[in-house]
Nucleic acid binder design. Structure first.
Lengths: 199, 199
DNA sequence: TAGATTGTTAATCGATTAACAATC
DNA sequence: TAGATTGTTAATCGATTAACAATC
């Protein structure tokens, strides 16, 4: 799975470049992935090509989009309208294509009332009430406090977690983590060259 | 490595909670990781505990920070001052603790000249010239165009890539990827429940 | 001492890759 | 047909876990 989004993006690029036929070889080379890996990934999801031809690009894009669930729309709540929340709200707010921001919450009175697209920033106090009225599919969590519990309690089934919090606890809530700071740490680690233990 | 940042964050939490002694068991439980995994990870980096005791928390925090290279400072350039670039600039700009934003670039005349902390947003045209004057350790890339090439050419050795671009090409440039959209796709995939191929 | 916790070796598991017959 | 490319089986590789003697 991991790799599917990268496949899709590269396919878009091929498509844009006017290519209408791809081999696993070709896709693999562009992503530094073995062709055999790509065929295995695709066949795992029941997507097959033709020998001597490969895959038709429109067919493949369509297939991968379906695998990623991008044939559906998802309603999104942004929880925390700080700078990151703001960025994400616009990010998905602008195109309501697959991910459609429907609710935005923050605690800061200074930003409550602000409107993104057609969506007003509302008080965090209203979280439960508003979620009861409008179910969302995904909550994007950008506030470090334990609003996560409230989200889970309110029946949210997927959380995209931008905080450092460790969200296990919840049975049947999908968690996807994106700790932006961790990437910087990993780079720092590599720059510092800090050692697999000397031997 | 992957897991080190999570270890560190959890250790901070323990520390804050006043705990001054941790076992691999304890750390593992809180992160849903096997104790044996943790010991293996730490010993790999030459960090050892004491039987019947575990690890002293200050010692361990210090050790993990060193592993992650957080005993050094890193100079950062933010490339692209859109909403995400802006969020990241403030994120690291506010505390110049480990990651210190020194340069910010954008193409948009409307934001050029704006100042974050003490750092002015400068024209992307000045990229090479400014990087020649002030070396940076890490470039945070948030613009979808191929500024990546220019960064590599200008001698940048680490790129934190927020774009969908596939950055292989460069020998001896560390790349860390953080494609925010991919996380949404993965959630969508799980929500849609799209099938390991029926059998 | 007794026993909790370590570090490491060996076993297990899963993911990646190589090999190759099938096929368009 | 010839040969490029497929899907899959088997081999390899690396990462995780279990088992356990060492030890504080």
């Amino acid at each position: 799975m991991e790799r599917m989004p990268r496949y899709l993006m590269q396919l878009y690029r091929f498509k844009t470049a006017g290519i209408d036929q791809v081999s696993s070889q070709m896709l693999g080379d562009s992503l530094r992935i073995k062709d055999t890996q790509i065929r295995k990934d695709l066949s795992y999801f029941g997507v097959f090509g033709k020998a001597r031809y490969g895959y038709n690009i429109d067919f493949l894009i369509d297939a991968v989009e379906k695998i990623l669930g991008l044939n559906n729309q998802y309603r999104v709540a942004i929880v925390g309208f700080g700078r990151i929340g703001r960025a994400l709200a616009h990010y998905h707010g602008s195109d309501c294509h697959n991910f459609c921001v429907q609710l935005i919450f923050d605690t800061d009175p200074a930003v409550i009332g602000e409107v993104v697209g057609a969506v007003p920033v509302e008080s965090m106090d209203l979280l439960e009430a508003r979620l009861a009225e409008q179910t969302v599919d995904i909550a994007v969590l950008t506030v470090p406090e334990e609003v996560a519990d409230r989200l889970a309690m309110a029946g949210v089934k997927s959380i995209y977690n931008f905080t450092a919090a460790e969200l296990h606890r919840y049975r049947d809530v999908f968690i996807e983590n994106a700790q932006i700071a961790y990437g910087m740490y990993k780079l720092a680690h590599r720059i510092a060259g800090h050692w697999p233990r000397k031997r």
